[in-house]
Nucleic acid binder design. Structure first.
Lengths: 251, 251
DNA sequence: CCAATAGTGTCTGTAAGACAATATGGG
DNA sequence: CCCATATTGTCTTACAGACACTATTGG
């Protein structure tokens, strides 16, 4: 979130759109952050975001700020609204209402430095959140985990929990992989997001029994990985809900 | 949502808090509505709501507007944020960002006319939404179903779907009943919100096996209803999540 | 005794979880 | 052949759903 001083005779309340962009790199769940160039929280990492313009809707604002701050164009992933944060003093300068969004993305193009932020990069979520999934808050930041600017630690925690929950009952895991993909790749998405291990046999059975989750990739060709048997290829299916659901362990 | 003209040199964007208050009357899911006294949509029914004040958080704003417009004080129920609606032209007068909330309430005090609205009353949700759960939109309003003002039909549909979903995996159904309650009363909550019938034997088994959902009411006394066997009484349990979940039929 | 409601018991199909066994590719 | 990975098979336990049956009150 980047907030500049209110303009002349400006609004008593500012509306911004922030975005939690998640992807997977090296089997780790990572989030896109930008380093703040100006006070407050100068030098601290924050979520991309900025003011909502008069004639754009909230999702457009989130995507525009993402491009401006990180250079991440196009966004061939999944985007949804997360939650709105509006505590009176969440920004020390003025009242700021922030509509947070959640973006899920396959790991393809990496961010290059944008115009508004001095740096933009992906960072592992595990280094930013406490083990129990709570935000690395001011009281006890996780070891070597710098707390995020503003209430962005809380927003990140909410976004990660939303992603973890939606992997259970929606086909959103496929937003993290490029087509075509193997079931092993899809299974590694679940393992990275949930932070657990998933049995390969059970995952296969559940993924294929959930109608419309994935569909076989026409050539039925396989893709070898590292000396093993080539895996079948799949594409995203038409389902919007998973039946039956893929439940997280340890409930 | 009630929006008045912006003040002198007012903000370019207004922030309001609306609230979908649901309760159950005569085995029907009903929603609190207020009749608009002024244009636009004069005379149409709308959700309670209004401007967020500078030093209150979003939930406080929603509750304050609810009291002002409906006289419903205290609110001994459940309140949570629903979603934020910010399409550029959702209000014809100016840009309005509305943070919608969802309130669940036992049927106790009925609303009396408030100050800001000419009338406030509960209306059955089934008369306002199309059978498939979509909002009674402008193209084809359900028979004798007046469309709500602004995009409140969509907000209502989202709120009802949220309530239906959360009955599955959370103990929120207990927010609709007064303590102590019988399992039959709790079961009728599920039937009213889901619009389905629920087997009494299966409901009992599931409700009692979900740890922390309900706890026996000390006296272990029964309450007769209409000539039948007195039912055991229960109170809300400490659980925040239901294990196993109570799934809706017909998935 | 009858009506009405509360509560119990039983059976079946589906699915989760654990884990063994087999298949198929590359060195 | 050996290794690594993919894929199939099996068994156990849990639970949803349907429905028959018993229990307890008031009239």
């Amino acid at each position: 979130m980047t907030v500049s001083k209110a303009g002349s005779g400006g609004p008593s309340v500012a509306v911004t759109a922030d975005i939690v962009v998640l992807t997977i790199q090296s089997a780790q769940l990572v989030v896109m952050l930008v380093q703040r160039a100006n006070p407050p929280y100068q030098g601290r990492w924050a979520l991309p975001g900025g003011f909502v313009e008069p004639d754009e809707n909230l999702e457009q604002a989130a995507l525009r700020e993402l491009v401006e701050e990180t250079g991440l164009e196009g966004f061939p992933g999944h985007l949804e609204q997360l939650r709105t944060y509006g505590a009176p003093n969440r920004d020390p300068r003025m009242r700021v209402i922030s509509i947070a969004h959640l973006g899920l993305l396959a790991n393809l193009g990496l961010p290059r430095g944008g115009s508004d932020a001095s740096a933009a990069r992906f960072r592992p979520v595990a280094e930013l959140l406490a083990p129990d999934g709570q935000a690395a808050g001011t009281p006890t930041p996780a070891r070597n985990a710098p707390a995020l600017a503003f209430d962005h630690g809380e927003i990140l925690a909410d976004g990660v929990e939303r992603a973890r929950a939606k992997l259970e009952y929606s086909p959103l895991a496929t937003a993290f992989v490029e087509e075509p993909f193997t079931l092993a790749e899809l299974r590694r998405v679940y393992e990275a997001v949930w932070g657990t291990s998933v049995d390969t046999a059970d995952f296969r059975r559940q993924a294929l029994s959930a109608e419309g989750f994935v569909t076989p990739f026409p050539p039925a060709a396989g893709r070898g990985t590292e000396g093993g048997q080539p895996a079948d290829l799949y594409r995203r299916g038409p389902a919007r809900l998973l039946h039956p659901a893929m439940l997280r362990p340890a409930r």
